[in-house]
Amino acid sequence: MTNWLPKDFWTRNETLVAGVIVLFCVIATISDPRFFTITTVSDLLRAAIVIGILAVGAMLVLVSGGIDVSFTAIAVFAMYSSTVLFLAIWPDAPWPLIFAVSVGFGALLGAFNGFFIAFLGLPTLIVTLGTLSIFRGFLLTFIGSQRISDLPPSMRDFSRGVLARGTTEAGNFYSIPWAALALLGVIVLTWVMLKKTMLGRSIYAIGGSVESARRIGINVKWTQFFVYVYVGALAGLAGIIHGSVGRMADPFSLVGLELSVIAAVVLGGARLIGGYGTLTGTMLGVALIVIVQNSLIVVGIPTTWQSVTIGILILLGTGVPAYRAKRAAARAG
């Protein structure tokens, strides 16, 4: 008996995704021994930071029973407008301040979503589709549509900061930027909130049954509102990190990524009906998507097939459990 494993271990999405990742790595290492090195790992980690932070937010929304497609627009809005703001008033501001303002902008836009969803009760997909274009349209019309590569110096300092860097004896170069700490911080903070606070449990409860949550006295509206504010704040953080690390405030970046991020979260086992989703699963999903986006070529699949691969992964990752559930329901009669 393997009591230390959860009962549904073998049927969980997490297990499936982890399996695919391992399989991918094995094949990749066989076809190109250079794949499995610290260089690749640190490259992939760097690529995963922004997507990872966004995915944590997207997961939270799915757990609460909604779906958000506007977070990329929030991220780019918060990043670009805080950059523009500081370039105008205080170009030498320290980066933590710029980051805080970006996070604040994000939270504000999240509150905009939250108002329509929590207090007006509108369908989340439609609202966030709408705000996606509102945020983007507003940004490009009123704030600016030019790429800015002349960022406040402190942002560039941030992008140079590394936790570790070096070259292994085999000559593999690696570096892990400060931004990795941000992802870690977001994960830890969200984990504590989801597992250890009543607020977090309330989010799961609402995802499980809104009506029941209302009946036992959970403040459903404010909890939902909080979810969108929190997601907005995370998007603001992800956006400014994206801008700093890329050393460019590009108002056209990030938007378009939302479906890949949601794909990562759904692959990790979060369900659209709400109430289900784990950070472990989300991070595994992010890892898989990042690997597919960056290393497909290593296993001999041309980069032009990236979209197809991700699409098929989504269909398999969500289709297999859905089909299994359908069969189980039919069997139960």
Partner: peptide
Amino acid sequence: FSLFPNLSVAENIAFATQLS
């Protein structure tokens, strides 16, 4: 019954108490 299908038995029983 107004329970939460996705939460554990323990949490379902104690949730309202914890809230109140």
